[in-house]
Design a protein around this nucleic acid. Sequence first.
DNA 1: GCAAAATACATCCATATGGATCAAAAATCA
DNA 2: TGATTTTTGATCCATATGGATGTATTTTGC
Lengths: 166, 166
Amino acid sequence: METGTPLDRQRMLDQTLSSDLRYLMAVSYVVLANNQVTNRYIERRYDMPVHAWSALYAIVTYPGLRAKDIQHLFPRPQNTISRVVALLERRGLVRQTVSDQDGRAKSLMPTAEGKKLLGEMKAKALERQEEMFSALDDGERRIFLKLCRKIAAGERLCHSEAMGDS
Amino acid sequence: METGTPLDRQRMLDQTLSSDLRYLMAVSYVVLANNQVTNRYIERRYDMPVHAWSALYAIVTYPGLRAKDIQHLFPRPQNTISRVVALLERRGLVRQTVSDQDGRAKSLMPTAEGKKLLGEMKAKALERQEEMFSALDDGERRIFLKLCRKIAAGERLCHSEAMGDS
DNA sequence: GCAAAATACATCCATATGGATCAAAAATCA
DNA sequence: TGATTTTTGATCCATATGGATGTATTTTGC
């Protein structure tokens, strides 16, 4: 709309993604925008928080892992994981058994139902990934992945000096 | 999975970032890990949710914009924006005045305090950005940014077919 | 011009979230 | 061995979150 008014939105986004903070803004924007879509879908379709699906993914893919291990794949506070695992167990998607090697730890295993449900969710996630990255060709995707992995491997991603979390 | 020890963590992450969902997993991991650090910092240091700082950033950078416009920079539900703007106003960091062109809309302006605080926060964010991307050299950062912008420009990032939000 | 639809923003309410704390089980060490 | 510290996971509580709804204003269609 109109003349003297709100900054043109595309321009505003462009300008932000050209500012000093462009790297941070750009990658955050992509993930925020995707979450907006994905979180709503998971919550409506499966009546569970997104992190429940992340946890289920981890448990089906790496059966026997502990809650603690999930945190390394999906960096979230400890109690968040604890709760979503309890939810998955209530729904019969997962079973926890006290580890025989460590009485504190619980070994997490998916049930047949859990595996089935994850299969369905993974298929959707693949579709969504395809949409999200449709702007990139295969070569670009490969490069993008390589760079993300490099960032992920960085020492200070999870433990910051600047923000006193080292 | 081997007998005994929990799956090696680095291996688990590597394997996940090589799976079908590698693109989605990789970029999500990077942002989740960063949020873990950044959100905590903003909340402890400034006693406000992260999205309050996002909103303040938008208002200082694009004075006069409306709450609605903030959503385009930082995709969050409408009421989240509404609340953090109210918080910023209570703290004297922002003033809202009814737009003279549209009686429904409110034009948002930073106060001197707001600008000062944002300056401080931006400096920290820059430091953090530097840490986060320290694994990439200048050329790689440029490429990464270009690819993020390409993804951001994609039609279906914000409006999904697969997840019925089109 | 007037009713109907759309838009901007605030608020309500049920639920999610995360820091702090707690309990139980190793691990460390004198 | 027994005391101390560390680690794993559960729970408590205050707050954040988001969908639905409400209110006011503008736009649309006739």
